[in-house]
């Protein structure tokens, strides 16, 4: 992302921010879903795309963040909504950081598919514990106080909140990508042993990427829980989220910064708008998309465009 990219992003953001003024509520909700998904996708890609540790279980952090926030906010019911949300965000992020730090050592010893599936296991275990330990109220459910001011429609409020959160996550990911830390993560993705041999502190970097990704995912989970208003274990620890986070990057371009943004936009558009009335087809459509992607466009949309541009540039030169 260079300077003109930054301007482009800010321009798009300004345009998007005006969305709720012009769009009917249904499309505001779709936009809200897109922004939430895009933010999640970028948070995922800090670990999965940059460091190459593709997690199949990031919904664990959404769920843990959401429940941690909900349980603490109930204790302080008298706080004004804005402060409650802020406290929820901080608590959710902190608990996710602790969880990620605790499991980082064993789980980051695994690579590739083993890491992916072990994370799926983490997500299932968190869901199970959350559901079965009564104090966590997973099966009973948790209520979240409304945070949108009365003058603003809730879907418009969360739309703007996700836009803001998404920009924040994108900025963090961009700063990481530009930094020495980011270069180290890329080298880990490419060849971990060689990276270590060049002096990259691979263990520390992987752990840091894992924890950062977990915190951001958890905080997004907190916002998501507020936008739902009421959550149970099933509404936050979702296997389709686990999968979609991989698909966003795959669809947009694995390892790139904007890949998950593009992928999230496309997938939400396909499932919510094109297949919006055909709920029974969602699993099938997602599966089919995955199969087609793997077979036809493994580089995702960005890879496809880049390949096409490269060919176009090279042909006249040769």
């Amino acid at each position: 992302m260079r300077r003109h990219h930054l301007l482009l992003v800010l321009g798009c953001a300004a345009l998007l921010a005006a969305g709720p003024l012009a769009l009917p509520p249904f499309y505001v909700r779709v936009g809200q879903m897109m922004l939430y998904s895009a933010a999640l996708g970028v948070a995922w890609t800090i670990l999965g795309g940059f460091a190459g540790y593709a997690s199949f279980g990031h919904a664990a952090f959404i769920g843990v963040g959401a429940f941690a926030a909900g349980l603490i906010e109930v204790q302080f019911a008298t706080l004004p909504p804005f402060l409650a949300l802020l406290m929820g965000l901080l608590t959710g992020g902190a608990v996710c950081a602790i969880l990620a730090a605790a499991i980082a050592y064993p789980i980051l010893r695994l690579r590739g598919t083993f890491f992916a599936i072990a994370m799926l296991g983490v997500s299932h275990v968190c869901a199970e514990l959350n559901n079965n330990v009564d104090a966590l109220q997973g099966s009973l459910g948790l209520n979240f106080p409304p945070v949108a001011p009365d003058s603003v429609a809730p879907e418009a409020f969360f739309y703007e909140l996700y836009l803001f959160a998404g920009l924040a996550v994108l900025l963090i990911a961009w700063r990481i990508r530009q930094s020495r830390f980011g270069a180290g993560l890329l080298s880990i993705r490419e060849d971990e042993d060689t990276a270590r041999m060049l002096g990259v502190p691979t263990e520390r970097y992987k752990r840091a990427a894992f924890i950062i990704s977990a915190i951001l995912t958890g905080m997004l989970g907190v916002i998501y829980a507020h936008s739902l208003g009421y959550i149970t274990t099933d509404s936050v620890y979702r296997d389709d989220t686990n999968l979609n986070l991989v698909v966003f990057s795959l669809l947009g371009g694995m390892g790139t910064l904007f890949g998950p943004v593009i992928g999230a936009g496309l997938l939400v558009f396909i499932t919510q708008v094109i297949l919006g009335r055909l709920l029974d087809f969602h699993l099938f459509a997602t599966g089919l998309l995955l199969v087609i992607l793997v077979l036809a466009a493994p580089g995702g949309a960005l890879g496809f465009i880049r390949g096409w541009r490269r060919r176009r540039v090279q042909v006249p030169a040769e």
Binding site: T113, L250, L283, T286, G287, L290, V294, P298
Partner: peptide, 25 residues
């Protein structure tokens, strides 16, 4: 998919699993 990349076969089989799960529903 195996000829593609490391995660390719895993994602493909995941996709097929989703499709078949839907069909069975």
């Amino acid at each position: 998919a195996v000829n593609q990349s490391g995660l390719g076969s895993m994602l493909l089989t995941f996709g097929v699993a989703l499709m078949l799960q839907n069909v069975m529903i």
